[in-house]
Amino acid sequence: MNANVSLRDFATPTWILIAVGLVAGGAVGLYEMFFGHLFATNSALVWTLPLVTYIFLALMSTGISLVLAYGLIMKDEAITRHTRPLLIMAIGILLGGFTALATELGSLLNMVWILLSPNPSSPIWWMGTLYSIELVLLFVKLVMDLRGRHGVFDLPLAWGTLVIAAAAAITIGAVFGTVIGRPDFHGAFLSVVTLVSALVSGAAAIVLLRPQSTLTEAAGRIFRQAALVFAALILTRVAYEAHSTVEGMLGWANIFMLVPFLVAAMLLSLAPRLLALVGILGVFWVQYSFIITGQLVSLGQMAHWYGAVQTYQPNIPEALILVLGIAVAAALIKLGEQFLIARRPAA
């Protein structure tokens, strides 16, 4: 653990940006929890940008866990040498997602209650449970790493994380895929989308946030392959939606969604961090698109209140929840870097 941290370490442009994000987003989050409703929602369009933020960050964290677990299982030194920073990233990003989820649920306690009154037929219950286990596993690994305890438990823990992380990502897709009355959601396809998008955004986050030649190469390889698979998935969906005659299906996929993945996968070596960011934005676009589009057709009597098909544009408070989630993740990652990763002693 690094004790040589002074207040001056926080007087940096990054920390100032993080502080602004925490204050602005935190104010909206607290207002939403305790005083009134600010989001652009109604009874027919209930999951908007704050939930997209949670899913985006949770899946990105899952992707980082998957890459790390892969590295540990395959004994890929380029990855395992960065175990601690990757664990900090995965934990920070997941907690950033949980923060956005808490504002969406209106209370932190509601997140705990999920575990206390279980319904095993509910994908949301599984999602909550799996992500809780995932968080515990990540903390256990971090504590073991901090204490220098490596040995017989490393491999089982890596396998455990791999299975739980993959199951969690698939379950997020199932939250939407098990909805029978909304054709843009229904089916197993979204579970594949969430799993692959987790890998794309997680590997891209490693390239973006931890620029280090061998790690960038290892994570970049995974990113490129996952991005190409993701592009193929989107293409399949575009073709399906173009031919679909399913009543009530609007179609969330778009041929232009292929562009960020193809460009980033093919040109990654030219500008790894920039193109990793392009990949991350592409994943956000896809996730935002399917989550929102699936709810735009009003069902039954809701059509009288909100029109047969709604439109949605995030409002400023919702955008600030996205900022809050990212700011919490960034703050935790920076704190982890400053306190838990040993710095070189001053010359």
Partner: peptide
């Protein structure tokens, strides 16, 4: 989740 799952709105 119930709102999203109910096919009748």
């Amino acid at each position: 989740a119930c709102i999203v799952a109910c096919p009748y709105g």
